[in-house]
């Protein structure tokens, strides 16, 4: 008896769940963009030359969609070539990374209020401390001298304009 012949097809093994989620997300994005192309203004024939503005993006979206549909099954092809698409994502994203993302987003959100110099100081202080760099002397030197040397190099030597903020407001 050939066991393989009678074995039922396991759909779960055919489809990679993570890639299925990615595919669904990408299909949603592609759909939104497709409908957006339908809302592009119509150019006059004089400019359009029979090449409407939506034509090229729509072709791209169709080609991308075609490839996206392969993604859930791609792991089967990769396995044959001894590649594991899940090797990089087996472990969940570490909390340190997620919090780093959040921390930097918050600092960027407040950067207009803080101004360039305080933003740099905030980055140089917050990230190393969060990453458990506790050597006080090193940290203090770093927090003070790194932003200062950046300001000196970019502002005074290269003439890059630094947006004023809270620090300049207090000093003035």
């Amino acid at each position: 008896m050939d066991k393989n012949k009678s074995a039922p097809i396991n759909l779960g093994a055919l489809i990679n769940k993570t890639d299925l989620i990615i595919t669904i997300v990408l299909i949603i994005i592609i759909s939104v963009l497709w409908f957006e192309t339908k809302n592009f203004e119509k150019a006059s024939d004089l400019f359009a030359n029979n090449i409407p503005a939506e034509m090229f993006p729509q072709i791209l979206l169709i080609v991308i969609l075609g490839m996206v549909l392969v993604l859930p099954f791609e792991h089967l092809l990769l396995k044959k070539n001894k590649k594991d698409i899940d090797s990089n994502r087996k472990k969940s994203i570490p909390n340190t990374t997620l919090f780093t993302m959040l921390l930097l987003t918050v600092i960027v959100a407040f950067s207009e209020i803080l101004g360039a110099i305080l933003t740099m100081i905030a980055i140089c202080a917050a990230l190393p401390i969060y990453w458990k760099e506790y050597r006080a002397k090193v940290l203090i030197l770093y927090i003070i001298f790194f932003p200062l040397s950046v300001v000196f190099l970019f502002n005074f030597v290269l003439g890059v304009y630094f947006e004023p903020g809270l620090l300049e407001y207090i000093l003035n």
Binding site: F40, A43, N49, A53, F56
Partner: peptide, 21 residues
């Protein structure tokens, strides 16, 4: 790669002057 090409279409289309994405 194609996503990069698609990102490149954002903005005013030079031929028609139509805003895209």
């Amino acid at each position: 790669g194609l996503t990069g090409v698609l990102l490149g279409t954002i903005g005013i289309h030079l031929t028609t002057g139509v805003e895209r994405f």
